[in-house]
């Protein structure tokens, strides 16, 4: 076979783009798709805002025990935790479930993008969306009169960042686990159901202590651990080590389950 003239349109010139460019492209693509999806935006921003505004407006009538704190100061960290949970768990599970269904992961598996590059791209897209959510919700909280504790700003900030990081890891690994073992429709149903159940009874928006007798069990849920860690950080300027360890334990469990069960098709 003689080599083709260099002007030929399709003359082979194969090669992979540098990994960092591939990962950046993947992260940009996935962020764009997440933000374009109406249902996911509802989950990411609209529901947390409604919970925050509704909670602050109705706190007195509901007679919540907030241990002497203002409702907005307790609810804002909880809603930030809710937003992390919605994106890291529900959005990741649903998006990945349908990516498997539509053969996207399979197709990308035949591209130069390696598996770890794909995973890294997903993580960056997820962190990107979480950051956008947190900024929006912090602004809404401040507008509603939220005043985070300024006792030890560095401790508060570091504890909140750790909580968001550990919470994102725990929920994303559980989301990937669900997406990897069920059909896309089942993932859609289950991920939304779990989100609703945890939002209502999982100690994420309201302090675990407000659940009375059930609080002993609820505090071990990843939702309660994330909510409690955020409240400790932003209400009491305190790092809740127990809650962080609970999140890390869920992260380890979720990662192991995903690693053992996830299939790319």
């Amino acid at each position: 076979m003689s080599s083709p003239p260099p002007t030929s349109t399709f003359a082979p010139r194969p090669g992979a783009a540098p990994l960092h460019r591939q990962v950046a492209a993947q992260a940009r693509m996935e962020s764009r798709l997440m933000l374009r999806n109406g249902e996911q935006l509802l989950l990411a921003i609209v529901i947390p805002v409604i919970v925050l505004v509704g909670g602050v407006a109705g706190a007195d009538r509901l007679g919540l025990d907030l241990e002497g704190h203002r409702a907005v100061d307790v609810l804002t960290p909880g809603v930030l935790a809710l937003a992390v949970m919605s994106t890291a768990f529900t959005s990741v599970a649903i998006a990945t479930g349908f990516e498997r269904r539509y053969g996207v992961i399979k197709r990308l598996g035949a591209s130069p993008l390696p598996r770890h590059g794909l995973l890294l791209g997903k993580v960056l897209a997820l962190l990107n969306v979480v950051a956008l959510q947190l900024v929006s919700l912090v602004v809404v909280g401040l507008l509603l009169g939220w005043r985070p504790t300024l006792e030890h700003p560095a401790v508060s900030l570091a504890s909140a960042v750790l909580a968001v990081a550990a919470g994102t890891w725990a929920f994303a690994s559980l989301g990937l686990f669900v997406a990897g073992v069920l059909r896309a429709e089942a993932v859609l149903a289950l991920a939304n159901l779990v989100y609703l159940l945890l939002m209502a009874g999982g100690g994420v928006v309201l302090p675990t202590s407000s659940y009375g007798a059930a609080s002993g069990a609820i505090q071990w849920l990843p939702s309660a651990a994330l909510g409690d860690a955020m409240r400790s950080a932003l209400v009491d300027a305190h790092l809740d080590a127990t809650a962080l360890l609970v999140l890390i334990a869920w992260g380890v469990v979720g990662t192991l389950l995903t690693a053992r069960t996830f299939t790319w098709e």
Binding site: P14, A16, A25, Q26, N37, V104, K106, R107
Partner: peptide, 29 residues
């Protein structure tokens, strides 16, 4: 190598050119 699957291979909400540009960006040339 280039691979064309029998079906699927793209996100349901992605625009046709956006998908093609994305795959292009994973390659060197």
């Amino acid at each position: 190598i280039g691979v064309m699957l029998q079906a699927g291979g793209a996100w349901s909400g992605v625009r046709a050119m956006e998908m093609l540009d994305h795959v292009a960006s994973l390659h060197a040339h």
